[in-house]
Design a protein around this nucleic acid. Structure first.
Lengths: 212, 212
DNA sequence: AATACTGTTGATCACATGATCAATAAACCG
DNA sequence: CGGTTTATTGATCATGTGATCAACAGTATT
């Protein structure tokens, strides 16, 4: 892959290969851009990004026609495969106890979204009104929360049943952990799974779904 | 484009005078700046703001030495008195049933924060790392959630008691309604009080605190 | 080694942006 | 009215910013 990354006749400690293959360079730019825009926002300046990468600003425009195109690539990288349809299948798999399904989902999902870059870029793009956000949240609604509501309705024995709004409330309470951590930079529990578990159990208990 | 010039000989209805008293003008600028920065973010350009107000960009700098000073004034206007200490008193007033106290608080609080300008400026400033945000959230912790936790502990008869993290979860689930509405611009219930009530009742039920 | 190819640079353009200041005109006052 | 004050403007400065391009230098090919 990298031919002369470290083993170079160098006079300095860090000697990056001056010249990369386009695919490599492009990916490098995207990766760095994700971290960069996550930190400073989508109004971050191309010169600052280039400086951080260690290339010239003009090189950015050899790989992306405009800054918007670069941001699109950032979106793509960050949003891609963030919502797998496999989750839907596991949520409706009634061979597994409902509580386990919910906990399994939020355990996976939280490790995926409680991440600095994702959390912040999602918030920045949301504030900017990006269509991608509504698409994502609609996806969340259709692929996760709606099936989940159906499962709870089936599993709930009594007449007190949750609404979709209740599910958004459950979801929001959990997501808010990540917001506190990465947007507001507040001290948060190292392992959010405990809080998630308690939250889910309170929710299920309210509708008399079996919890241990 | 100039809609305000024509008025001074005209004694008709309240036409904005071209020339305002400094206090008035200053307040007008702040008010418009709040709405403006809430919409486009703190990187909004002074020329766009001036155009929206209907004044010249240079006039802004007669009232605020720098753009940062203007943003500070925006913060002040938006954050000021957002957390009243009166709420603490009402939360610990044990002559009122606990459930009523909680619902009363979140009913008031939600009408205060489920507002476009507040929600978005809070999020923008949070992303920008403003110290004000952490101060505000610390205030929320000390003045609201901590007393509230104490009240619930007292009122809860059994050994299953909430933690502070549980309270943040309750809080986050409610706040998330406003985030969905104003940050992500998703369709939300017209009256959030119903969802709030259900959320609070689920919470209290989990700790066997009396609910109707 | 010589040559062609192309990833990369440094200079530069055109315009945007925060900030400044002398000139202007609306309000105030005698 | 006439004169003073000052809120407001229009022009302007210095720098920032996205984008462009000819020239350069590392790599591969012959």
């Amino acid at each position: 892959m990298n031919k002369q990354n470290v083993a170079d006749a160098d006079s300095g400690p860090k000697m990056k290969p001056r010249r990369l293959h386009p695919e490599e360079r492009r990916q490098q730019i995207i990766d760095e851009a994700v971290a960069f825009f996550a930190e400073v926002g989508l109004d971050g300046k191309t010169r600052d990004l280039a400086k951080k990468i260690g290339i010239t600003q003009s090189l950015l425009f050899k790989y992306f026609a405009t800054k918007d195109a670069l941001i699109e690539a950032v979106y793509e990288q960050v949003y891609l495969n963030r919502l797998s349809s496999e989750w839907t299948h596991r949520i409706v798999d009634r061979s597994v106890p409902l509580r386990d399904r919910i906990l399994a989902f939020y355990s996976d999902y939280s490790t995926l979204i409680f991440e600095y870059n994702w959390m912040r870029i999602f918030m920045f793009s949301g504030l900017a009104g990006a269509e991608l956000n509504r698409r994502y949240l609609d996806h969340m609604h259709q692929m996760i929360l709606r099936p989940l509501l159906e499962e709870i309705l089936v599993a709930s024995p009594n007449t007190v049943t949750p609404t979709m709004e209740d599910l958004w409330n459950l979801h929001g309470g959990i997501v808010y952990i990540g917001i506190r951590q990465h947007i507001y930079r507040m001290p948060c529990p190292d392992d959010p799974n405990e809080a998630i578990e308690r939250s889910v159990d309170r929710f299920l208990k309210a509708f008399s779904v079996a919890t241990p």
